[in-house]
């Protein structure tokens, strides 16, 4: 299995972050795992990496309900970034609001990146699929 160089986890809930990190480490899919407590921290770091020509995460785990900048606002900005490579974005949410699902379909059509949508919790056996390169 081809190792992914960098994964980003964006979630305000420390327990979820802990869980995802633990599963990723167990499966040893990535060298680096970056974590962010909200969309704003993440988008700012990614922009910074772009400027410095650093490698940006190839897979992103994204929560929707977050303070300051939520998942949708993050996506809105992210898809405008000049990223030629296809990034895999796994939306993870506990929401069952149909409006969120519609939002997903909207962004999915709008970008060349691969956007997936999963309800929490995720299981270890799902991680493999969710980290396969887009």
């Amino acid at each position: 299995m081809k190792k992914i160089r960098s994964i980003g986890v964006i979630d305000d809930d420390p327990i979820t972050v802990f869980g995802i990190k633990k599963m990723l480490n167990l499966l040893e899919v990535s060298e680096t795992i970056k974590t962010y407590a909200n969309g704003k921290e993440a988008i700012e770091d990614i922009k910074d990496m772009l400027e410095k020509n650093d490698a940006i995460p190839e897979v992103i785990f994204l929560d929707i309900n977050m303070p300051i900048m939520d998942g949708w606002q993050f996506l809105e900005e992210f898809i405008t970034l000049p990223l030629p490579n296809r990034i895999r974005i796994n939306i993870l949410t506990s929401s069952i609001d149909p409006a969120d699902r519609e939002n997903w379909l909207y962004y999915k059509e709008k970008t060349h990146h691969l956007i997936d949508y999963k309800n929490k919790p995720i299981r270890k056996h799902q991680i493999k699929d969710m980290t396969s390169p887009a």
């Binding site: 809930d13 979820t16 869980g19 309900n65 506990s94 929401s95 309800n119 929490k120």
Partner: peptide, 9 residues
């Protein structure tokens, strides 16, 4: 949402 996020954890 709020209950699910905790139970998921």
């Amino acid at each position: 949402h709020n209950l699910r996020s905790h139970t998921a954890n």
